[in-house]
Amino acid sequence: MAKKNVNEMSFLDHLEDLRWHLIRATIAILIAGAVAFIFSNFIFDTIIFGPKRMSFPTYKWLCNMSQLIGIDTTFCLDEFPFRIQNRTMAGQFSAHIWTSIYAGLVIAFPYVIYQFWKFLSPGLHETERRYSKGFIVISTLLFFLGVLFGYYIVTPLSINFLGTYSVSSEISNEIDISSYISLVRSSALASGIIFELPIIIYFLTKIGLVTPEILKKYRKFALVIVLILSAIITPPDIASQVIVAIPILVLYQVSIYISRIVVKNQKKKEKRDVTSS
């Protein structure tokens, strides 16, 4: 059966189309998750528990930097003063399943964003659809950069601070596996979503909800929000918050330029339409 033209589709037709795109994206995530489930040793021992070891690249770099400037830090410890444990019967199995699903989401992200674009593209002009490959590549690149930033920067900073924090020598840190994995997962995925800010601003500008003037007007408020966000996802020390805040502020500035370009192109199109009519 031939696919209907977007202008001929009813609301229910659009919902049906969206349903199939979501089904395809879900299947891709589950397939990628199944692959991650099979390679659980690599996923857990190398990736998930990597930031728990002092041999992790971030700790080595920060340790060398602290020694260079003559500062004693916890980045140069032999090992973290905590151990990870499982306290529920199905804890490890549940961690295996959910970690595989989230890993599947990360692996299948290019295809998921492709399905998202396929759903939106029929409503766009021909010239806009030409940039679909660029959109998918840029979205994927930003997401993976964000995940890497969260994994190599946010996660080790959080683990180093929280794993070495102690209010009394009488208390030993025995971290539940779900709590540890949740920290790694939320740090990586939250950073990946935050790095999609330019793409989000692009679409918000396209539908008229955001303009460059609005972004510039509320830049000071955005700075405060970024600092609050940095304080939430990082340890409560200034250095960590600044490290996290810098790329977000850069992305916000890039978003302003993107919004300006979108508005400029829309004005040019409107001008051509008026001239041709």
Rank of each mutant, 00 (worst) to 15 (best):
136 I>N: 05
136 I>C: 10
137 V>M: 13
138 I>E: 05
139 S>V: 00
139 S>E: 05
141 L>Q: 03
143 F>V: 00
144 F>M: 04
144 F>T: 07
145 L>S: 07
145 L>N: 04
145 L>A: 10
147 V>Y: 02
147 V>L: 10
149 F>I: 06
150 G>L: 01
154 V>A: 07
156 P>N: 05
157 L>G: 04
157 L>C: 05
157 L>S: 03
160 N>G: 10
161 F>M: 08
162 L>Q: 07
163 G>S: 09
166 S>C: 05
171 I>R: 12
171 I>Y: 13
172 S>L: 09
173 N>F: 05
177 I>G: 08
178 S>F: 07
178 S>D: 12
179 S>N: 12
179 S>C: 05
180 Y>D: 02
182 S>L: 15
182 S>M: 14
184 V>M: 00
185 R>M: 15
186 S>N: 13
189 L>K: 01
190 A>G: 10
190 A>I: 13
193 I>G: 02
193 I>N: 03
193 I>Q: 09
196 E>D: 10
196 E>L: 15
198 P>V: 03
198 P>Y: 07
199 I>H: 05
199 I>G: 02
201 I>A: 10
201 I>M: 11
202 Y>I: 15
204 L>T: 09
204 L>I: 12
207 I>T: 14
207 I>A: 05
209 L>M: 14
209 L>W: 15
211 T>F: 08
212 P>K: 08
217 K>G: 11
217 K>I: 06
219 R>Q: 08
221 F>M: 14
221 F>A: 15
221 F>S: 12
223 L>Y: 04
224 V>L: 15
224 V>Y: 06
224 V>T: 06
228 I>C: 10
230 S>Q: 03
231 A>V: 06
233 I>C: 02
234 T>M: 08
237 D>N: 11
237 D>W: 06
238 I>E: 07
238 I>F: 15
241 Q>T: 07
242 V>W: 14
243 I>A: 13
247 P>E: 01
248 I>S: 00
250 V>G: 01
251 L>S: 08
252 Y>Q: 09
252 Y>N: 04
258 I>L: 14
258 I>N: 01
258 I>D: 03
260 R>L: 14
260 R>F: 14
261 I>N: 06
261 I>Y: 12
262 V>N: 03
264 K>P: 11
264 K>S: 15
264 K>Y: 15
265 N>V: 06
265 N>D: 09
